[in-house]
Amino acid sequence: MTAAMAVPMEHALVVAGLLFCVGLFGLMLRRNIIFMLMALELMLNGAALAFIAAGARWGNADGQVMFLFILTIAAAEVSVGLGLVLQMRRQIRSLDMNDASRLRG
């Protein structure tokens, strides 16, 4: 893979920005907590793609190291978030964030 690639770095960053904006759009649009967690995953992936693209631009391993950290954070966030989803279902019998807007249910 030593051949020079026809893709400039900015195009990879544009794809990363598009993914992040789609995730942000989904986070604002949806009220179902499962879709909101999925939107968070999309935003994290957009950030990871930006790191990988920057690492490829300078041929540096740091971008992939940052991707590994993002992966770790996403795994911890999803496990706790889905535990919260189960508790929400048990306590208020709904997955709608509008039903969970008050403290103490």
């Binding site: 920005g17 942000l24 041929g59």
Partner: peptide
């Protein structure tokens, strides 16, 4: 939501609009 995300996207595209840098794709 689409307007707000769209404004953010346009800002990002304006930041990238300074010229293109080719990537030398060496496998890390």
């Amino acid at each position: 939501p689409s307007m707000m995300a769209g404004v953010l996207l346009v800002e990002l595209l304006l930041v990238f609009n300074r010229g293109l840098h080719p990537m030398a794709v060496e496998t890390v």
